[in-house]
Computed example of a mutant assay.
Amino acid sequence: MRQRLRVAAYAVCVRDGRILLARSPGPDGTPEWVLPGGGMEHGEDPYDTVRREVTEETGYRIEVTGLLGVDSSRRVFPGGRPPRRTDHHGLRVIYEGEVVGGELRYEVGGSTDFAAWQDLDAVSGLTRVRLVDVALRLWRERPPHGRLEELPRKG
Rank of each mutant, 00 (worst) to 15 (best):
P31E: 14
R15I: 00
R6N: 11
R61V: 00
E44F: 08
V134L: 05
L120Y: 04
G101D: 14
G109I: 13
S24I: 08
D133I: 08
R85S: 15
G146R: 07
R74D: 09
L120T: 07
D45K: 08
D71W: 10
E149W: 05
I62M: 00
T112P: 08
F77Q: 09
D71A: 09
R92V: 10
E141V: 12
T55Q: 07
L5Q: 12
H42Q: 13
D16Q: 08
R52A: 08
V123Y: 06
T65H: 03
P25V: 04
E57H: 01
G97H: 04
G102F: 14
A135D: 00
R51G: 04
P78A: 15
I94Y: 02
S111E: 02
E107S: 03
G26H: 12
E44S: 07
W117Q: 04
I62E: 03
I62G: 03
V123L: 01
A8Q: 05
L148I: 07
I19D: 05
F77I: 11
L126R: 03
R137E: 15
I19F: 05
M1E: 11
E103V: 05
G39P: 05
R137V: 02
D133Q: 13
D48S: 06
E57V: 05
R142I: 14
P46Q: 09
D87C: 10
T112S: 15
L131T: 14
R128H: 15
E57D: 00
A11L: 11
G69P: 05
C13D: 06
A8W: 00
E32R: 07
G39S: 14
P31Y: 09
T86C: 09
V134N: 07
I19C: 04
R6E: 15
T49H: 11
Y106E: 04
G26L: 09
P143D: 01
R85G: 09
E150M: 12
E63Q: 13
R140L: 10
P27S: 11
R15L: 12
R52L: 06
A22Y: 09
E53A: 15
P83W: 00
G102V: 11
S73M: 08
Y106P: 00
H145A: 14
G66H: 07
P36G: 08
G69S: 03
F77D: 12
Y95A: 04
